[in-house]
Structures are given as structure tokens and as C-alpha cells.
Amino acid sequence: MTSVREPVDVVVAGGGIGGLSTAYALARSGRSVSVLERSPEFTEVGAGLQMAPNATRILKEWGLLDEVLQAGVVPRRLMFKDALDGSELTRLELDDAFVQRYGAPYVVIHRSDLLTILVRACERAGVELVPDTDVKDVVTDTDAAIVQSARGEYRGRIAVAADGLHSALRTRLSDDEPICSGYVAYRGTVPVADLGGEIGEEALHEVVVYLGPGCHLVQYPLRRGEIFNTVAVFKSPAYERGEQDWGGPDELDTVFAGACPQVRTGLGSLWRDRHWPMYDRLPIPSWIDGRLILTGDAAHPMLQYLAQGACQAIEDAHCLADELRREADLTDALKRYEAERTARTARVQTTARFWGDIWHVDGVARIMRNELFRERDQHSYKYMDWLYGEARPRGRPAT
């Protein structure tokens, strides 16, 4: 038997990082919020997250940055190396000048730790967290959004679709499907104490990215430097051949066989019993269907090359709360949110694809890329300001 609950201001479908960020941002501005999550618990699968200052600046404003810093690591630099010969290509110092320029630090944190921080923040803010509740549909009218689930109906002034890459609610706005890149990711974490002399002391204070032909490997510390995170990504030859079974551990070893010793050693830290095919979608111009709006991966799933998936979801949450707070007319507020965020995230999505292409070149293109990277002024922020800086001046409307 279904039931109808007391209405709230906002019902969020999806309790991942994007959904909880949205819920917290709205609750701290005084709105009543319910979050419906299909899983029995509010948990995240995976390992590390890179949180650039465009996100940590918002977490600071929300009063959550200290908790994030306590749970994570502030690396000293972001380093790019060649995966074949191990040579350094370029680096970005994440020092005081970087923090001063962007107003917050670059932080790496375990996904589950960030989710736990957001869950606790939502609880403190009075958000209703409802696990084991799969959203079936949303019905909207001029006054409300009715979110339908097996547990009953949840009514709000608006509904937020934060149900991820495979969002069922996105179908209300687009008939597109996730696009498989043909790349697959393997992840793994190992206690630093178990690594012995496999990595140097500097590696415990860096984010290192090894760029290779059709593959790359990323490493950085997590949980206050107690564990070491490794991610290996490669383009599957079996996928290219059109085979149904692709991306297995045998391909992982084959693709990375020609890599430098540091990279091949890193492969030993990976979980071999699971892997993650990499998908995104093309940008869409509309995120609003009546009182239903999209956010996070439901709105703009992106490849991971800019490490911006979670960061852009946090930006979404901040923007939505800001527009709803200072715009008296709800329809106008949602339209302003849509206009600002569709433009911003479309650029991030398309740039992430392009950046991935640059990472994975071979032959003459690899030689040219490496030379360009080595010639880069390491003190220049030319290519980061658009992404890490303010998306728009605070307190002023988007234009």
C-alpha cells in the first residue's frame, strides 16, 4: 500500500555525492529536503577522488572543508610523466601561490569518506535521508513535483534528478544513451605500510599521472597518507574488435607490457576482480521538465580526464541553491540555473574528451605532446583559470 507524505520543498532522487551536495546546499539555505536513494545504504563504490579548488572553495563556504582536509590529503604537486620511459613532462605546484590564486587547496580524498562527510552534514541540516527507495517516475504540475516510488509518493515544490549516468529521469528530457569510450578503468588501494620500498617518499605527497599510448596510470595517497591509490585506464583491443567480453585483466597486462618499471609495479596494487568501463554522454541544452531538474551525472556525465565529475556536481548544487535563494520566481531561478550550468558543464565535458585524446597519443604525436609539455611554463596558470577559478563573480547574476 502506498502513501503520500507531507510535502517538502525539494525531493532529490539519488543519494550519491551530487544528490547529497544538492540536498545540503538547499537545506543550509533553509529549505526542507528529502533524499531518496535506491541502495540500502548511502555508500560509494570506488577509491580516490581529486577535488580541485573550484569544488573545495565551495566546501569551504559550506563549512565542510576542515572535515575534508582531516580525512584526505593535500598533495604538494600534480605531476605528469611519460608512461613508456618514466620521464617527467611537466608539473603544477599546489603550493601557497596556487591556494591564494584559487581560494582553496587541491585535495585528494576517498569517495566513501567524502560521502560520509556529506551524509553527516545533511543529517545536521535536517535533511530526510531515505535509503532503499527506488524512484520510478516524477509527475509535475504547475505547483509541485510528485516523486513516485514503491514506498509511496514524495511531494515537493521541485524534484532533482541526481540518479547518475544511467538516469531514468533524464529520459524525460532526452532519448540519448551513455556513450562507451572503449576505455576501462582498474582501481586499487594498498596500505602504505605494505608497500615497503616500492615507492619513494615524494610519491606520498604527489598526484602522478603517467601518460601512455592508449593508456594511463594515476597514483596518489589517501586517508591522511595511510593508503596509496592507483588507477589504470586503457583502451580495450577486444572492444575495438567488437567483442562482447572486453577489458579483462589479460588485456590490462598486455596493454601496459611496454610501460616503464614504475608503471608496471603500480599494476600490482589493482583489484583484478572488478573493472569500470568508461562512459559519458553528449551535452544536452535542457535540464528542466516542469518542476523536475537534472544535476550531476544525470545532467552531464563526463570522462574522468579533468577529474571534474564530483567537482561539477558540487558546482551544480551551489549554483542551484544560490539561484533559488536570490530569485523570487521559481521558474526564473531554474532557468538561470539551467543557462549557467549547461554552458559550463558542456565545456568541461568536451574538454575532458579532448584532454583524454592528448593523453593517449602514440608515435610522432607522443613526441610532440611531450615536447609541448616540457616547454610549458610551470608557473603559468593559463590553462587552469577557466576551470579552477570562479565560475562567475559571487553575488552577481549570470549573464
Score class of each variant (00 low, 15 high):
E41S: 13
D96W: 03
T342Q: 08
E128S: 09
D176V: 10
A168D: 12
T265D: 11
L26H: 01
A352K: 06
H205V: 11
D134L: 11
A159H: 01
D322R: 12
D245C: 04
V10S: 00
A150Q: 13
R369Q: 11
H275T: 15
K382H: 14
E37K: 01
V160N: 00
G212Q: 09
P249A: 11
L165D: 10
V73E: 06
L92T: 12
E41I: 09
F98I: 08
S32F: 00
V160P: 00
P393E: 15
E67L: 10
D175S: 13
A346H: 09
V11H: 00
D134H: 13
I158G: 01
L92S: 03
I227Y: 02
V364G: 05
L267W: 08
P301S: 02
T90W: 02
V35T: 01
A365Y: 08
V33H: 00
G86M: 03
T142P: 02
D289V: 01
I314C: 08
D134Y: 11
L129W: 02
A298L: 04
E44T: 05
D176Q: 10
E226C: 01
P53A: 04
E338I: 04
T399M: 05
R376Y: 12
V138E: 10
A313N: 09
D175F: 06
L92R: 12
G200P: 10
R366S: 11
Q304D: 09
G200I: 09
E201K: 14
L115S: 03
R187A: 02
E44W: 02
R394G: 15
A83Y: 08
L330K: 01
Q148H: 13
D95S: 05
T90C: 04
H275V: 12
Q219V: 15
T350C: 07
T331S: 13
R325L: 10
A162L: 05
K382C: 13
L115F: 06
R325C: 06
L169P: 12
S87W: 03
R325S: 14
L94Q: 08
E202N: 12
T399H: 06
G268Q: 11
V11T: 02
V74W: 01
L372V: 13
A259K: 02
P105W: 03
V233H: 04
G63D: 08
R76I: 07
A55P: 09
F42Y: 10
L26D: 03
E153K: 05
V35C: 00
P191I: 09
